[in-house]
Design a protein around this nucleic acid. Structure first.
Lengths: 314, 314
DNA sequence: GCTGGTGGTGCATTTTTTGCATCATGCGCT
DNA sequence: AGCGCATGATGCAAAAAATGCACCACCAGC
């Protein structure tokens, strides 16, 4: 989009905090970039950046204008996808911000299924935690966010929620593997592996340990479920996940872990100790999503309703 | 705004229905304009206009895109006014679509008062009827509409309403001038002057005449209240208006017409014959108005609440 | 006071846009 | 059918705009 270049440049300069760095990234000279910015500032009638010795920073007017620019880009993408839809081919780009839980098994399959029906739609998946995901929605770097964490920002609209009970995952031969539900007190002196403090699962577990005054033997912390899962093949321990991170899409749901790793089993934590957490599927409030994103959102909510009918709300 | 020129061009071409006519209006050559359009169509990946022997017309994609363009312009105006507000000066341009009623006395004073406080805000007032006003809101040619008529379109948001009882205006010495309220049957064989069929006042009166089976002596129809009012100085007759078209702002309201023309008096039509009509103050649903327009809207609603507290809703 | 980073500016060059002349097409009128 | 008159599209040269280079002024940290 030729007529948007100057605006895109402003976005990059704001992100880089320096005209020269942005110019490098955009593969043009700093002078050309500088002049484009000066020109736009002149047209606006007011400077958008404050010039600091180490670079530039948006002033208040600049922040307002940048927000406008981003919404223009997002809206243009929506219009383009809508126009493409007219000719029968669904075209577009869907940007997703997801916690580590949903991107394990649920999103790969959901995206692949969608792309099977609409091969002209491309995806961008960024793994991130609560606040960052909300920021990405706001800066229009993400269309959709899937978060297993409370929603803080007022500008986020929750399109659907999914209640998820935390599961304990352990080697098949583990002494707790035979129980139907795991109590927190069962975990005292057990070796456990915990996700990072930013994770929603971790926050629920921390609360539970504190409430029951149980101090497990934390042998490892990681932000990678894949790493933790593979670690269990070498040292027996327990780690925690939500069903959506475990279940294969084709299964009817439930907590049986056989289809993600035959040597591991999962058992739910007892409801009395840990209340189910909530996976939030969100987009920016007041925003009209591009066709591709809107339909994908629709698809995953419908899909979840099919698999976890009782736990899906809204 | 240099980076918006191509988009503005598309808007003009769509309105003119011809590249050459639009080029004349834009003071450039038709070839330059033609090429800009071809270029944008290429960037979009699909044509926006269908080429007819007599000119061009938007296709479906073009209509979607034009709507996008207009919303971009409106949003840019909003951002600019918001940025200007930062530096203390309220700046901007407010576009109003109004029926003939509100522009007589209410709007001139309201706009003048507002401009007294914010001299950097300019106004554009287009007189139009119901459907056209709704279309102007939708095409973003108007920020605010004041209509004494039912709202038909779903995309219009009514910010406030004002109930208005129709008034009969007549020369001071008229035989009906002494009555407190005028019944429709009083008007049979009276000489009356009616506004155009598109007017909300006319529609209410037509209904009333029909219901009471009264056939007045219609000696004149006009779409100009000013003309009708001045006509009464030369031939005694009755015409109809709503209070907001009569009252001066400084007055406490009411139907006494002395302050708009000493030789005329106004008396309300009896409620039993004609129910009060509604003046709607609207803007486009879902739209964030520019600061200047938003504040002006606020001001007039507050002003009306002060003068006609009982009749203002929402 | 030097060094390494920043944004800003004058001038020659390159790229883009514009305008003129012209073509091809289709409608309406004779 | 033929003519006139409008439309949009295109080749090519001129005008305008954007770009890149070399350089300046400025500030922070050493």
């Amino acid at each position: 989009m030729r007529f948007m270049t100057s605006l895109r440049f402003i976005d990059v300069v704001a992100r880089e905090g320096s005209i020269r760095k942005a110019a490098d990234k955009l593969a043009i000279t700093s002078t050309a970039l500088n002049r484009r910015i000066l020109q736009i500032e002149e047209e606006i009638g007011q400077p958008l950046f404050e010039r600091l010795p180490g670079g530039v920073r948006l002033n208040t007017a600049g922040e307002i204008f940048l927000q406008h620019i981003r919404s223009q880009f997002a809206d243009l993408a929506r219009v383009q996808s809508q126009i493409a839809d007219l000719s029968g081919i669904r075209r577009g780009h869907v940007q997703i911000a997801s916690g580590a839980d949903a991107l394990r098994r649920f999103l790969p399959e959901a995206i692949a299924t969608y792309r099977g029906a609409h091969p002209a739609v491309s995806f961008d998946l960024t793994r991130c935690y609560g606040e960052e995901a909300e920021a990405r929605l706001f800066s229009l770097d993400a269309d959709i966010a899937l978060l297993f964490a409370p929603i803080r920002a007022a500008h986020v609209h929750v399109a659907a929620t999914l209640r998820q009970q935390i599961q304990c995952v352990m080697p098949a031969g583990h002494r707790l593997a035979g129980k139907d539900a795991i109590r927190i007190r069962d975990l005292s002196d057990e070796r456990v592996v915990l996700p990072t403090a930013q994770s929603g699962v971790r926050q629920l577990m921390d609360t539970a340990f504190l409430r029951r005054s149980v101090e497990p033997d934390v042998i490892l912390e990681s932000d990678s479920f894949e790493f933790m899962q593979n670690f269990l093949h070498f040292e027996p321990a327990i780690f925690f996940q939500i069903p959506i991170a475990i279940d294969a899409g084709r299964a009817g749901g439930g907590a049986d872990a056989t289809d993600f790793d035959e040597r591991l089993v999962s058992r739910p934590v007892d409801m009395a100790d840990v209340a189910p957490g909530t996976l939030h599927i969100c987009h920016l409030k007041g925003r009209v999503l591009p066709v591709a994103a809107a339909k994908f959102l629709d698809d995953i909510i419908t899909g979840l309703r099919g698999r976890y009918s009782d736990e899906v709300d809204q």
